[in-house]
Design a protein around this nucleic acid. Sequence first.
DNA 1: CTGAAAGCGCTTACAG
DNA 2: CTGAAAGCGCTTACAG
Lengths: 333, 333
Amino acid sequence: MSKPQRMPISALKVAERAGVSRSAVSRTFTEGASVSPATRLKVLKAAEELGYHVNHLARGLIRHQSGIVCLIVADINTPHQSFFLEATTRHLQATGKVVMVLNTSGEQHTIENALRQTLNYRADATVVMSGRPSRSLVETCIHNGQRVITINRDDLPEGTEQIIVDNDEASKEAFLMLERAGCKNLAVISSTAGSPSILARENFFMEAAVKAGVPARLCRVGPTNYQTGITAARQILAGSNRPDGVFCVTDLLALGFMDAAKRDFSLHIPQDLCIIGFDDIQQASWQAYELTSFRQPLEEIAQTIATSLQDNTSLPPQLKFPLQTVWRRSVRP
Amino acid sequence: MSKPQRMPISALKVAERAGVSRSAVSRTFTEGASVSPATRLKVLKAAEELGYHVNHLARGLIRHQSGIVCLIVADINTPHQSFFLEATTRHLQATGKVVMVLNTSGEQHTIENALRQTLNYRADATVVMSGRPSRSLVETCIHNGQRVITINRDDLPEGTEQIIVDNDEASKEAFLMLERAGCKNLAVISSTAGSPSILARENFFMEAAVKAGVPARLCRVGPTNYQTGITAARQILAGSNRPDGVFCVTDLLALGFMDAAKRDFSLHIPQDLCIIGFDDIQQASWQAYELTSFRQPLEEIAQTIATSLQDNTSLPPQLKFPLQTVWRRSVRP
DNA sequence: CTGAAAGCGCTTACAG
DNA sequence: CTGAAAGCGCTTACAG
């Protein structure tokens, strides 16, 4: 007790103290193994006294199931991503998994490294939220018996389980909302990121607009963040042909756009300008904004992933979730 | 090639294909082991062809170093926490570690479970950002040769390496700033969370106020979030004895307070009311707020943790980082 | 129900 | 530089 032991204690030590075989201690810690109540008690007592904890590294080694799921994600510090991360870790933990987060900058080599780690640690599954992993590496994951689940990207190889959100539907709906509000001159504020989701939102909105014969322009002046929203507003609102209805491909863009519209151009929302965002991040509901937006069903997605991993039953090749439109005050009713 | 292999391939297979011993393949993948260029090349080639990846579970088992560091954190979806998470994962990965995030709700049993996982996976270290882990479990971690690093909590057992931020200094400075701005009637908006950081901020501000003889009251009407800021404002600004200077223990509280002050009470900031936040989250700099605040040196903290883990040299028992005051427009100069 | 034994995939002295 | 062997801490048929 007085001299701290440097090494974790092993099942063998517990067995010795409890006066049973190492098999017995193994059994008392594995779900549904057959141990008599008496020996189980002895083992539990000894384990408690010694501070024993099953070594999941060793267990994973022989069971070929590490219990680890890797999350490959970029921009963790962004509201939407951090919400998803929170939901995913919570649900996965509830089913006994543990999540390893691999932070990628979106550059090719960092995401390759992330994929490599997922392989190194023999993760049961990897969830890809960012980046464009090389086809070959993803294939290696799958060949290794690992499941790979992707969120909002449809550009990945066969064998991958894809979860997507109905960007199509929502973007058309956004157009309709603006049209109903009487907007005659539209703009979609996007970013230069070019991810599948972003592209889909741009495309479906623009398409709906041309189909209806309403003029709409597309604006991409930087990465997907608040500042780009500001820059876009300054650029697009300064011209003579000012839009009166704006669809932002992301709430962060919308919030920046609103701030610039109000402060730099003294525009009133929704009277002078209607605006719609996407993702329904927390800040969208703040009193300074009250942005109408589309909510991604993050809880449901995380839940789906967790139970699918728990039951070890694979998802359909492509699973599409609906978005929920959240009406607030940035669009005239 | 056509029939996908379910199991990851092992070093033995690589050795066979390369025509060397398994030791040789092990050596080519361990830093600084002695292998001739020739055999290394053969091994690398075979590994590439087979899609081999060292099993870190097995490696961790024999090296007694998993390469994993656990982050125990609550409220991941909060701006401040998600920034810290981003910085930490990034820096740790850069030094070859991988981070496992354990999402705790702040309830006792969830944090105990998290601590247990950190033990199960034989993490090299655990970084505690939330909750009040039981003394005994933390001691078990340390007994097991694991390092435990805490952020902004000074209430943990011996052997723990504590990183804190100079709440003392900053809170006093906050008072001084408000005093210099001519505020005569102060309030500190806090929460019911009662974490060491929050308590420290309250206390040092209040202390400075009474010492200077300026009236100040303390308001705690809910958890540490935006909504509580709103509630606090509605409560405190409605009375006859309205404060003209407010210190919010967190930016999120401040942002909620500002929104309510502006919208529900038509107050102008900083003319009618000066307000100071804490943490300097991204939203504090948004045009709708321009909140003056204190920045936590998250990058430096993450960096410090990473290099300390890399060099395997322990931190001083208590390491204190200064805060940087970020002037914006919510306080009269 | 229980224990002795084999084996998971690796690394590291130990000889050569 | 290289290989055969021992061992990390576990689990799981296999007998009893």
